[in-house]
Design a protein around this nucleic acid. Structure first.
Lengths: 109, 109
DNA sequence: CGTGTAAGGAATTCTGACACG
DNA sequence: CGTGTAAGGAATTCTGACACG
């Protein structure tokens, strides 16, 4: 569940131009949101940004927040909270698996 | 199930350079396999090819076949058969859903 | 048949900066 | 603060073709 680095959704394979088409944002805006630490594209050999479908989703949420007048540092905080929530959920999940394993053997999850 | 045009796997968003990295094939090879009708990338506004994750998978299968010495027109035929098989499977699936619906109401699949 | 390569052009992407505000 | 833009350079992508075989 935590090793999603290789799921289709998380793989960084989309160039900024296509992300721009997909989100309706300008490349300038996308680069700026990276500068503000809202998204974290990988870099290609020659330094080109590569985004995932997940990044595209995040960008659309960002676009909504921006339209609502929320500032980037606020969005940054909100996202940090949300991410933390997921992490805690994963921790609980892991603990639960451990208990189940202890009781019934490997649950193969 | 048949409206997969918009699933992550089918969306054409990857440029040829990244497909090259992902598959280990040269851009020349990828373009050639398109010429031989083995893959069907979409085109960006200015004519750049855009591939899906599904295309990447197909290309890896093609790479294997080529290594085995299978010629492109043979691969083309094999793929036509496989595609037809999937279609028939989908037809059966649709018919089955119809029957279930008639018996028990909408199965919400 | 399948793939490499040089050719020439068009479009992309990158960074740092100035502008407005 | 968020975004547009012109600047200059580097890397990408495209097509049609010649080469080898």
């Amino acid at each position: 569940m935590e090793e999603d680095k290789h799921s289709l959704k998380e793989r960084k394979v989309i160039t900024i131009g296509i992300v721009s088409e997909l989100t309706g944002l300008t490349v300038r805006q996308i680069r700026y949101y990276e500068e503000r630490k809202l998204i974290f594209p990988e870099r290609s050999n020659q330094g080109s940004r590569k985004f995932s479908f997940s990044d595209v989703e995040t960008l659309m949420e960002i676009a909504n927040k921006i339209e609502e007048g929320v500032q980037t540092h606020e969005i940054r905080r909100e996202m940090a909270k949300k991410k933390k929530g997921v992490t805690e959920k994963e921790v609980r999940n892991r603990m639960l698996k451990g208990q189940i394993r202890a009781q019934f053997g490997d649950p193969k999850m």
